[in-house]
Amino acid sequence: MPLDTSSYSLALLRLDGRRWNELRRIHAQISTQAAADGSSYLEMGNTKVLCTVTGPAEGRQTGQRGGKDNEAKVEVEIGFAGFSGVERRKRRNDKRTSEMQHTLSTAYSTLLLTHLYPHSTITIRLHILSQDGSLLASCINASTLALIDAGVPMTDYLVACTAASSSTSSESESEISDPLLDLNGLEEQELPFLTVATLGKSERVSVLLMESRVRMERVEGMLAVGIEGCKRIREILDGVVKGYGKRYA
């Protein structure tokens, strides 16, 4: 087995050769599916996500058509391709997936100007083609792009990324414990990390999720680095949208 995250302190290099504050390569496209109202394809390193948006449209259920009287409902569906992980695995709707769906749908319900579309539903469908860490962050970024492509009005970009602390919770203070930005799959398994999503250029945090234990004093650094990362991702996504706009102007 090659090295693990403990080798970070040797030369301040992470497992894939990045420094603590570097993002992975991000590649994004929008309008990839002609048939959808809005679509996007996003790669953060080896995490690859395809997103399509349908709506705002009339809801599927006949009884209750769309959302409440005064605003649109946001539905999120996440599907994993069988080949997305290291091992081929059938993934039914497990709790983790439903939690991600719920996180996304609450985040976008507040972000999107849903009051413009009463009695309707906006459906976001995410297809995970390949998983290598920062999955929730990738989903948020892909959804944002697809929603922009669909022309759903929103106040700003919702962008997300992950941040970790480079040494495990109970190790000593003397060891270097840099916050790390944008984790890959291997790092996620070994280090405590959080996912943070902010609204565009502002530092307003809209999603913050952490499932591992970490020393309280490390969180501040992790959060600061995460928010910084979000700002940079916003620049990149903005570039993609603008580039697309120019080409089809």
Binding site: D16, G17, R25
Partner: peptide, 13 residues
């Protein structure tokens, strides 16, 4: 298992 990992090559080591 087949593992694919990214490597970021750099000149500042």
């Amino acid at each position: 298992q087949k593992i694919v990992r990214e490597l970021y090559l750099r000149q500042d080591i």
